[in-house]
């Protein structure tokens, strides 16, 4: 049973989907405040390289080293997003150009590659990595074994994060204020909410989560370093936020779905199933589905229920009297 295609795909979807989940939750928070950050890929790579550097150079027990690595990755991601925040919130630069610049600056041909090369990180595999939390024997249990008990602590933490973000958005005052800042910054400002502060805070949290997402790659999924190790996941994360209608619980579903797609082609091939150009359509599917969802979201009749934060992408300037 545990070898059935469905179970294998769900289990690997959770594994591959976890960095997507972290990154998309971070991007979701930033976008809910009105800041579109196209630099997710760059921030992830910074998180990946700094997290990896930490476990290689920081001599401590596995648990401590890994905790430090995740913390440093989060800090580095947040620091990277600070550039974007300053440019678009304080200087009101174009969010698109700034986000792209961030990816070029930090991404596969930028700072992450520079640091990886300069510290010669590609030479060795990771000294500490995340392993499954529960005993191996549990994973033989039908269904729940691989799906529920077969993961590392980053996966379980991400489940907690989904609930936290969901509660934050719907059940707390800061969450309410955040939604107001993203939807109607002028209204929020008039009610004494500091629009810029909310935008800075959530852009930085978004960067931190992208950093963690990157570290997930180098410390768990593929515990080594090479240029462009995230392979475009950052862009999928951006797509995912739209796919999930800016809602955290749907981010989880979408992340695991997109994660499963990444494993679909090899699994099908291993089982000798051929469904046309499998590699092509399984790879392209997340992007094509995002386009379809975007068309649905753009239709005016659904916009108000499902749509993006109304002020997404636009700087807030206090109206001149």
């Amino acid at each position: 049973m545990n070898n059935s295609l469905a179970v294998v795909l769900i289990a690997s979807g959770i594994g591959y989907g976890t960095p997507l989940l972290y990154a998309s939750l971070g991007e979701l928070l930033a976008e809910r405040s009105g800041v579109l950050n196209l630099g997710v890929e760059g921030m992830m790579l910074i998180g990946a390289v700094t997290g990896f550097w930490t476990v290689q150079r920081f001599h401590a027990g596995t648990a401590v080293a890994l905790a430090a690595a995740v913390g440093i990755a989060a800090l580095a991601g947040a620091a990277t997003s600070l550039i974007h925040a300053f440019l678009v919130i304080t200087l009101r630069a174009s969010q698109i150009v700034s986000g792209l610049a961030l990816t070029i600056f930090a991404g596969a041909a930028g700072l992450s590659s520079y640091l990886g090369n300069d510290f010669n990180l590609a030479a060795n595999p990771a000294r500490h990595t995340f392993h499954t939390v529960f005993p191996a024997s549990w994973q033989g249990w039908p269904l729940v074994g691989p799906i529920i008990f077969g993961h590392n602590v980053l996966v379980y933490a991400s489940w907690g994060l989904v609930v936290t973000v969901w509660l934050y958005l719907t059940r707390t005052r800061p969450g309410l204020n955040l939604r107001a800042v993203g939807d109607a910054p002028a209204a929020a400002d008039a009610m004494g909410i500091n629009v810029a502060a909310y935008r800075y805070a959530h852009t930085l949290v978004g960067g931190a989560l992208a950093g963690v997402a990157g570290a997930t790659f180098t410390l768990a999924i593929n515990p080594q370093w090479f240029d462009n190790i995230t392979g475009g996941s950052g862009w999928i994360a951006i797509a995912l936020v739209i796919f999930a209608f800016w809602r955290p619980e749907l981010c989880l579903v979408g992340a695991y779905f997109f994660g499963a797609l990444q494993d679909l082609a090899p699994e099908l091939q291993a089982r000798g199933i051929h469904l046309g150009p499998t590699v092509l359509w399984t790879n392209a599917l997340p992007y094509l589905m995002t386009i379809v969802v975007l068309v649905l979201v753009s239709a005016s009749s659904t916009r108000r229920w499902l749509g993006a934060p109304a002020a997404l992408g636009t700087p807030y300037v206090r109206e001149e009297g």
Binding site: I83, L87, L91, A93, S94, V97, S98, A101, L102, I104, F105, A106, G107, A108, A109, G110, L111, S112, S113, Y114, L115, G116, N117, D118, D227
Partner: peptide, 17 residues
Amino acid sequence: PSGLVGVIQGIILFSAL
């Protein structure tokens, strides 16, 4: 180090913006 060029490009763009 490779990647330096991307860093410079990015910073040029940031400072131009």
